Computed example of a mutant assay.
Amino acid sequence: MQSRPLSEFCLLSRSKINLFLQIGPVIPEIGLHRLTTVMQELEYADDIRFRYSPPCATRATLQSYIPPPDSSAKSVQYELGNWLMRITVRGDVESPLNESNLCLRAMNVYYADFIKQLPLSEDSVRPYRFFALDLHKRIPTGAGLGGGSSNAATVLLVLNELFEAINFETNLPNLAQTLGSDVPYFLYGETALCSGVRGEVYPLPPLPKLGVLLLIPPRQVSAGAAFAAWDGLTVGESTVTEIEMIDTEEHIRSFSWTQPDRILWSALKNDFEALDEYHNTVAALRSRLADLGALHTQLSGSGPTVFALFPDRAAAEAANISFDATDRDGSSVYEDWQRIVTETYNSRSYIDGKGA
């Protein structure tokens, strides 16, 4: 018997780059570094298809809406109270279907917060609901592009679109912070200054559409490992004070972000580039990509992805075609690196289509 039709959202869960990243002192109470970073959303994205049933009075009625799982892809199904969840992952990028999956964690934290707010009497019956999230992964994990954080924020936004249960301006960012420091940024996207420990977000005037060339090595780097390497490099002592970071943030706000020809590109930086595993590689790529017309080249996040900005997508495409994967001594240094041409993205329209 064919299942009843489900309503659905079709979404793009976009990646990001860090135009600026400064690592500050460790906050003793929580053992995490204070950060100042400017994030920029990109067109490069994962696809998410989000399907859901209407509220059902009984489990038997709910069963009539549940389609069979796709046998050609990995999926997991589990229950949260009267909610039945299914997450399916496909694509060339591995995404674990366990408690570390940020989509699962986002569903869990939203459900827990949502249920707390329901004013139910003892004889009330919570309706049964089915949710199916089909995630097509393109953004590599552990690449400094925020793929998992973007997925989590997208799930929170969709659930809140359906239920409008959590105040967007206050409670939803707080919920996002429990999932990771980058997740609150993806509730807003565009060009934004993110500061502090938990990723407080301050929108900036949007950077116009620029071409972007992503160069992604065939390895993952966890943020924890990168910070441990940074602490080893600085012997646990911050290279910048809290007051200096506040001054930096004020300076960043004054940048002419809407006019690339007026941005002082040399003022942008990523402190992680000082690590031994990045320093020489990024410097070599910066020189090579400048010869191909790049406005700016930098490490994204905690690495290992390096990005280059160009005046437009056509210029980025041309640089990608002209890029020589061999080093000056003839060795094949970059042959196994993935190269992606994309663009900066500046629109807060996360939901691209809504099914009836």
Score class of each variant (00 low, 15 high):
residue 6 L to Y: 07
residue 8 E to L: 09
residue 9 F to P: 03
residue 11 L to K: 06
residue 14 R to Y: 04
residue 14 R to Q: 13
residue 14 R to K: 12
residue 14 R to F: 02
residue 17 I to T: 00
residue 20 F to R: 03
residue 21 L to P: 01
residue 27 I to Q: 15
residue 29 E to C: 07
residue 35 L to A: 00
residue 39 M to G: 02
residue 40 Q to P: 04
residue 44 Y to S: 05
residue 49 R to N: 08
residue 51 R to P: 00
residue 53 S to A: 09
residue 59 R to F: 14
residue 62 L to N: 09
residue 62 L to W: 07
residue 63 Q to H: 13
residue 64 S to H: 13
residue 65 Y to R: 04
residue 66 I to R: 11
residue 75 S to T: 07
residue 80 L to V: 08
residue 80 L to T: 10
residue 83 W to A: 08
residue 87 I to N: 03
residue 87 I to P: 06
residue 88 T to G: 01
residue 88 T to S: 15
residue 94 E to F: 15
residue 96 P to R: 11
residue 97 L to K: 11
residue 98 N to L: 10
residue 101 N to M: 06
residue 102 L to D: 04
residue 102 L to T: 14
residue 105 R to K: 15
residue 108 N to R: 13
residue 109 V to T: 12
residue 112 A to C: 11
residue 113 D to R: 14
residue 123 D to F: 10
residue 123 D to L: 10
residue 130 F to R: 09
residue 132 A to K: 11
residue 133 L to K: 06
residue 135 L to F: 06
residue 138 R to L: 14
residue 142 G to Y: 09
residue 145 L to F: 04
residue 151 N to I: 01
residue 152 A to T: 04
residue 153 A to V: 05
residue 155 V to D: 06
residue 156 L to G: 05
residue 156 L to F: 06
residue 159 L to T: 06
residue 163 F to P: 07
residue 174 N to P: 02
residue 174 N to M: 13
residue 176 A to M: 08
residue 186 F to R: 01
residue 187 L to D: 09
residue 187 L to I: 07
residue 192 A to R: 00
residue 197 V to F: 05
residue 199 G to P: 06
residue 201 V to P: 05
residue 201 V to S: 07
residue 203 P to N: 02
residue 204 L to N: 03
residue 205 P to S: 12
residue 207 L to A: 03
residue 209 K to H: 13
residue 210 L to S: 03
residue 211 G to Y: 04
residue 211 G to S: 03
residue 213 L to D: 02
residue 214 L to W: 00
residue 217 P to C: 10
residue 217 P to T: 09
residue 220 Q to G: 14
residue 221 V to T: 10
residue 223 A to N: 01
residue 223 A to S: 15
residue 223 A to T: 15
residue 225 A to C: 05
residue 226 A to E: 01
residue 229 A to V: 02
residue 232 G to S: 13
residue 234 T to I: 10
residue 240 V to M: 08
residue 242 E to Q: 13
residue 243 I to M: 11
residue 248 T to R: 14
residue 250 E to L: 11
residue 252 I to L: 15
residue 254 S to V: 05
residue 255 F to R: 07
residue 261 D to P: 01
residue 263 I to W: 06
residue 264 L to Y: 10
residue 271 D to N: 06
residue 275 L to P: 02
residue 287 S to I: 12
residue 287 S to D: 12
residue 289 L to Y: 09
residue 295 L to A: 04
residue 297 T to Y: 04
residue 297 T to G: 03
residue 298 Q to A: 08
residue 301 G to S: 02
residue 303 G to Y: 00
residue 303 G to D: 01
residue 303 G to S: 05
residue 304 P to C: 05
residue 307 F to W: 00
residue 312 D to R: 00
residue 312 D to S: 07
residue 319 A to F: 03
residue 319 A to C: 08
residue 324 D to N: 14
residue 328 R to M: 14
residue 328 R to D: 13
residue 336 D to V: 14
residue 340 I to K: 03
residue 343 E to P: 00
residue 344 T to C: 03
residue 345 Y to R: 11
residue 348 R to D: 11
residue 351 I to M: 07
residue 351 I to C: 06
residue 351 I to G: 01
residue 353 G to L: 12
residue 354 K to N: 03
residue 355 G to V: 00
